[in-house]
Nucleic acid binder design. Structure first.
Length: 625
RNA sequence: GGGGCGGUAGCUCAAUUGGUUAGAGUACCGGACUGUCGAUCCGGUGGUUGCGGGUUCGAGUCCCGUCCGCCUCGCCA
């Protein structure tokens, strides 16, 4: 075999007249009878090979003329300045290799598609086919680039945390089932009939145990499993950058993470990230209607309930009549909220705003009342503004107040939501993002590069009532500590009667949001056994159940647990941001489809009766696949 | 679990209200061609329209079921 001396992205004018050897895949074939060009490709780039009747034997010309896309070849030849025009699109475009020796290492069958990102790739094969033949898809320069960025993120991560004294520790994949939270993948255990492991949703408790074990600072790039329906940026099997620190407070973690983010963005995107601003959960919900606000644009939400109360608009009045005396953030309290869309009068056509009404119905809202703001005209306000279309006539009596409250200007459109606090907030929070895309406030999805708007979201409530069961659930997870100044109130609270207090307790949790996407989340943990037991109790676990599921944690907490805190990054989402990927599948080498299949290996698949028997299992489903 | 979009040649797509032999580009095969780089030109092979039923004189097209892919709501402590 001809052994390569250089890669296909390496040769320059400085190599001219050297004899070199290259190996790779045939990327393109251009034949002229007595003259044949082959582009040879490997991970590093493309180089033009030339076979010329004047220089090559008839056998070599014949062999070259039979080469086709994706054949694997190796060549030996001499580098020379291109005899024709140089190709400015290629780093190697000044030179070509005149081939003296060609080895056809492996002839390909006609490939189902070509791994081409160039102009010919306008019709990229569909994803199903690309996933089935992932080894071809991954040859694409784009995919190689993504794998490379992902590799760099691993390296920067390990380097940063190593420099800061973190210890990389692996934690079990075969773990204990703790059925709170996400649905788990379950693995039958052969040696203990009828018992099962679960795959970890995260190494949460192991990293806490490692703190109690004296590891002080832990990190791991780990696989996590959640058997929930996937999304564009979510799949059942994903990767976290997981870490935990002992003897720290919230601020210590936050500054360590800001350092990490600055390093990461410097290394990967060559960008300096300024200090990250913070917002409280309540404020985020009020202003943006979501706990992960995208701050690249305005379109903030304003509560106009008190103004709406003065109108005769039935939709407003009906909404406001719901639990009028409830606490401000009570989820079923009736409210009216509004978004001012600058320039919306022109950009948001009737067809678009009708679509918004349909859109918010998916979140339980009835529709989106709308009004346009114009200058002058009949009935113009003192500021010279008038309302038109939609619900304009109902708003006439409160025009001046609305103009002042929302800062309205001519050409604006105002979008309203009148419903319960929970529904109106959610509907406008989602609508806000849709409007931003519609009127061009955002780069197109899949664009690479900034702006990078980071945000810490802090001060989450510890608990909320599940809207169906009415049970208390932890907003983050049951191991999250109350914020330092809330600890006493939680310890003192009577769990059976003190709803107001429990709902008001704020946790020591923190999320990092990037451009409206949650990229990391963590908290200070409970390190006191009694506090942890009280949380389990509040979540409806009897002391026996708590012991059955978490005795190891409660015991560990009683044998000298240091204060500790941690966080985990969604690594796949980080990569998506760096490379401008639209789908999480594009940043995972071997991803799964929406129903969790690997189209290349055809996993999951059936197993034999013998396997089932050995595992003490009987399947009630007919075998598939 | 719910809603939406899609599945036609190896690939990317087309095919009027249901109507003749399901087309184009590309890939592939054969031929021509000495400076291309999405090479070009000439010729050719290539189809159980995802699968199974149904309606009809006639179905790629309409109906029912099913499988697969994507998007989305719920879900994701």
């Amino acid at each position: 075999m001809i052994k390569r001396t250089h890669t296909c992205g390496e040769l320059r004018e400085s190599h001219i007249s050297q004899t070199v050897a290259l190996s790779g895949w045939v990327n393109a074939y251009r034949g002229y009878g007595g003259l044949t060009f082959i582009d040879i490709r490997d991970r590093y780039g493309l180089t033009q090979l030339v076979f010329d009747k004047e220089d090559c034997s008839a056998e070599l010309m014949e062999l070259a003329s039979r080469l086709r896309n994706e054949d694997v070849i190796a060549v030996r030849g001499v580098v020379r300045l291109r005899a024709g025009a140089p190709n400015p699109k290629l780093p190697t475009g000044q030179v070509e290799v005149v081939v003296r020796e060609l080895e056809l290492i492996n002839k390909t069958d006609n490939p189902p598609f070509l791994p081409d990102d160039g102009p010919a790739a306008e019709n990229l094969a569909n994803e199903e086919l690309r996933l089935k033949h992932r080894y071809i898809d991954l040859r694409r320069p784009r995919m190689q680039h993504i794998l490379g960025i992902r590799h760099k993120v691993y390296q920067t991560t390990r380097r940063y945390f190593d420099e800061n004294g973190f210890l990389e520790v692996e934690t079990p994949i075969l773990y204990k089932s703790t059925p709170e939270g996400a649905r788990e993948f379950v693995v039958p255990c052969r040696n203990v009939p009828g018992s099962f492991y679960a795959l970890p949703q995260s190494p949460q408790l192991f990293k806490q145990i490692l703190m109690i074990s004296g590891c002080d600072r832990y990190m791991q790039i780990c696989r996590c499993f959640r058997d929930e329906d996937p999304r564009n940026d979510r799949q059942a099997e994903f990767t976290q950058i997981d870490l935990e620190m002992a003897f720290v407070q919230r601020e210590d973690i936050m500054s360590m993470m800001e350092g990490f983010i600055r390093r990461l963005w410097k290394d990967i995107a060559n960008t300096d990230i300024p200090p990250i601003t913070r917002i409280g959960y309540r404020e985020a919900m009020e202003r943006y209607g979501i706990d992960r606000p995208d701050t690249r644009y305005g379109l903030e939400i304003t509560d106009i309930s008190e103004i709406a109360r003065k109108t005769d608009f039935r939709v407003f009045q009906d909404a406001l009549a719901q639990h009028p005396d409830a606490r401000p953030y009570f989820s079923k309290k009736g409210v009216v909220k509004a978004i001012r869309v600058p320039g919306g009068a022109e950009k948001l056509t009737r067809k678009i705003t009708d679509g918004y009404s349909e859109f918010v119905k998916t979140f339980g809202a009835g529709g989106v009342p709308t009004v346009k703001v114009v200058s002058g005209g009949a009935g113009a306000s003192p500021a010279g503004l008038a309302f038109e279309t939609g619900i304009a006539k109902f708003l006439e009596p409160v025009k001046a107040e609305l103009v002042a409250a929302l800062g309205l200007e001519p050409g604006d459109t105002v979008l309203f939501a009148a419903d319960t606090y929970a529904v109106a907030t959610k509907a406008l929070g989602e609508l806000r993002q849709k409007v931003a895309r519609d009127i061009g406030l955002l780069p197109k999805p899949g664009c690479e590069g900034g702006p990078w708007n980071f945000l810490w979201v802090v001060d989450f409530p510890m608990f909320e009532r599940n809207k169906d069961s009415g049970k208390w659930v932890a907003l983050h997870h049951p191991f999250t500590a109350p914020r330092e100044d809330q600890q006493d109130a939680f310890v003192a609270a009577d769990l059976s009667s003190d709803d107001e207090t429990i709902e008001s307790i704020v946790s020591a949790g923190y999320d990092i949001v990037l451009n409206g996407q949650e990229i990391a989340g963590g908290s200070v943990r409970i390190h006191n056994r009694d506090v942890q037991a009280k949380v389990f109790q509040l979540l409806g676990m009897t002391p026996e159940q708590a012991r059955e599921k978490f005795s190891f944690l409660l015991e560990a907490l009683s044998y000298g647990a240091p204060p500790h805190a941690g966080i985990a990054f969604g690594l796949d989402r980080l990569i998506m941001n760096f490379v401008g990927a639209e789908s999480i599948r594009d940043v995972i080498a071997f991803p799964k489809t929406m129903i969790g299949q690997d189209l290349m290996t055809r996993a999951p698949s059936g197993v034999t009766e013998a396997q089932l028997k050995e595992l003490h299992l009987v399947s009630t489903a007919a075998p598939q696949g």
